[in-house]
Design a protein around this nucleic acid. Structure first.
Length: 209
DNA sequence: GACCAGGCACATC
DNA sequence: GATGTGCATGGT
């Protein structure tokens, strides 16, 4: 909680997710896998331009066409398949409608998302938190890096270990998890590049003594 | 030109 | 169960 207060005190609310509808957020969650968000924005703009950012259009678009539209996001052939797989899950569980999908209970919905090819724990939790507003903590590369570089967790801690660290220490509030993850990404983008060491990290000096 | 970015599936040992 | 590899664009 101290870390959260330090980050929030420094940067304030991050207004995540940068996307409007549950579908746009879910698509963004897949496209941003190991990819800079700026490239994802271009891909999403292409989908909008081609009126493809709806469940039916994504269902009907040929995979090759889809890949062409999302090209700027990288891994475009892989991600086209992953978007198709996600739409398939929406069809099978919810009859093509995101609003019906929103009626599924959180644990069940997480299981369903994880069964979808191309959706792993981070993508599933991002969709749960930001598209469906469930109180779920998202663990990403920045989260792990922040914790390991400050020696707050072991190098080999699992996704579940890290998520538990936060959920055990925090009130179970969607808005809190929303801001916290976004703030960790902000910190990461500013200070935690992959191959940089941690000396310049300002976090410790923001924490209470 | 090297390095990096809000992962994941799959092969291999 | 751990470890390695392919996937690919665009910015610094």
């Amino acid at each position: 909680m101290d870390i959260y207060r330090a980050l929030f005190g420094r940067w304030g609310p991050q207004h995540w997710w940068p996307g409007d509808t549950p579908l746009e957020i879910s698509v963004g969650a897949v496209l941003t896998q190991n990819t800079n968000w700026r490239n994802v924005e271009k891909a999403i703009a292409n989908l909008k331009k081609n009126r493809a950012l709806n469940v039916r259009a994504l269902e009907q678009a040929p995979a090759g066409k889809l890949a062409e539209w999302i090209r700027p996001a990288g891994y475009f052939n892989v991600k086209a398949k992953r978007l198709k797989a996600f739409i398939g899950t929406v069809r099978e569980t919810s009859g093509y409608t995101m609003s019906r999908m929103a009626g599924i209970e959180t644990g069940e919905l997480r299981r369903i998302l994880l069964e979808t090819s191309g959706i792993g724990p981070e993508t599933a939790d991002s969709i749960l938190l930001y598209a469906f507003e469930r109180p779920v903590f998202v663990v990403d590369a920045y989260t792990r890096r922040m914790l390991t570089r400050h020696h707050w967790i072991a190098q080999n801690a699992s996704y579940a270990d890290i998520a538990e660290l936060f959920t055990d220490a925090l009130p179970n509030k969607t808005q809190l998890f929303n801001e916290y993850h976004a703030l960790i990404v902000k910190l990461g983008k500013e200070h935690c590049k992959k191959n940089a060491r941690c000396e310049g990290c300002p976090l410790e000096k923001w924490l209470p003594a």
